[in-house]
Amino acid sequence: MRWPSTRARPACRRPRAPSRGDAVKQVVVLDYGSGNVRSAVRALERVGAEVVLTADRAAAQEAEGLVVPGVGAFAACMAGLRAVRGHEVIGRRLAGGRPVLGICVGMQILFARGVEHGVETDGCDEWPGVVERIQAPVVPHMGWNTVEVPEGTTLLAGVEAERFYFVHSYAVRSWELETHDRTRAPLVTWSEHGGDRFVAAVENGPLSATQFHPEKSGDAGAMLLRNWVATL
């Protein structure tokens, strides 16, 4: 797969602006000390959500949607999340079928563990699997890239062929959850950098996540966020 230049801009139809008849959805962006929160707030507001940036557990629990952003090291993000008991909020929301969207490291911490520089850190363990360094000649993976989208996607509906913006050195390189047809299998989107394949997005009932940054991915990212908000 060719890695598009960071100057490339994906072209897709613009997300529909909310109409007067649309119900406004309330979304909390969890503020637990990770960066990138303001851009996530602005992107969600642009697609019509009513957004609050807070670490308040009650507000995060009660909102129609919860977004967990994340940049930086896995261990640091987990420490920040645990400091505000965000892992408990995520678990309780999912137990009640209430939507959660993880972004970048906010996706990675949903897995069982992360390994960085020889240090292993427990994650939220919503999915089995390990976050590890990408095995590619050039790391970090930074720029626009295509994704391999499964059939039946809701999150990426309408933008299956578009490019999204990635900034990361670590990823989940194998999908380990086996449902054995007892429950509906999650929809897993993949991408590739330098010959190494990794998980780019997951749709699993109320829990969704992206390794890429939809808030930095232009119209394609806006459409994805609008798709997610529409499910709330």
Rank of each mutant, 00 (worst) to 15 (best):
E178S: 15
H117N: 10
G102S: 08
T189L: 01
L207V: 00
G21C: 03
E160V: 11
L110S: 09
Y32K: 00
V37C: 15
A171V: 07
I109H: 02
G97S: 09
Y165L: 03
S19I: 15
G123I: 06
P15Y: 13
R173K: 11
G96C: 13
L66K: 01
P128D: 11
T179F: 03
G195C: 07
P140R: 14
G102K: 04
P18R: 07
S39F: 10
V24R: 11
W127F: 06
M223P: 00
E116A: 06
R38C: 08
M107S: 03
P69N: 10
G35C: 02
D56R: 00
L101F: 12
E64L: 07
R2D: 11
L53N: 09
F198Y: 13
Y165I: 07
G65M: 06
R173H: 10
F212R: 03
P10F: 00
Q211T: 02
D196W: 00
A23I: 13
V68C: 14
V138R: 13
P15D: 14
G195T: 06
G129D: 08
A200V: 00
G221T: 05
D31A: 15
A79R: 14
T54Q: 10
R133H: 08
A73M: 05
R133I: 04
L177E: 04
I103R: 09
A17V: 06
L225S: 09
L207A: 03
P140A: 08
P18C: 14
D125T: 11
A83L: 10
P69C: 11
G70N: 02
Q135M: 13
A209I: 09
G102M: 01
T6N: 13
R38F: 13
C104M: 10
D219A: 08
Y170P: 02
F111P: 05
V51F: 14
G72V: 07
V199I: 12
T210F: 01
T153P: 05
P137L: 07
F164I: 12
V71Y: 06
P69V: 11
G33N: 02
H213T: 01
E215K: 03
V29L: 13
V68P: 15
A59C: 04
H117W: 01
H141N: 12
G218S: 14
H168I: 10
L232A: 01
A83Y: 07
S39D: 05
M223T: 10
H213D: 00
T121D: 04
V105H: 02
V130Q: 14
R113H: 09
T231V: 05
V139Q: 11
G106Y: 01
D181C: 06
T54E: 10
C124Q: 06
E88M: 08
C104L: 05
I103E: 13
L232M: 05
A79C: 13
A49N: 11
F74R: 03
E64F: 00
E176Y: 06
V172P: 04
G80C: 14
G106A: 02
V27R: 01
R92T: 15
A79G: 12
V41E: 06
V229T: 15
F164R: 03
A73S: 12
P18F: 14
L225W: 08
A161L: 07
E132N: 11
D196Y: 00
E192N: 05
V139Y: 13
V167W: 07
M107L: 14
A76R: 08
Y170M: 02
L187T: 04
A11Y: 15
D219K: 15
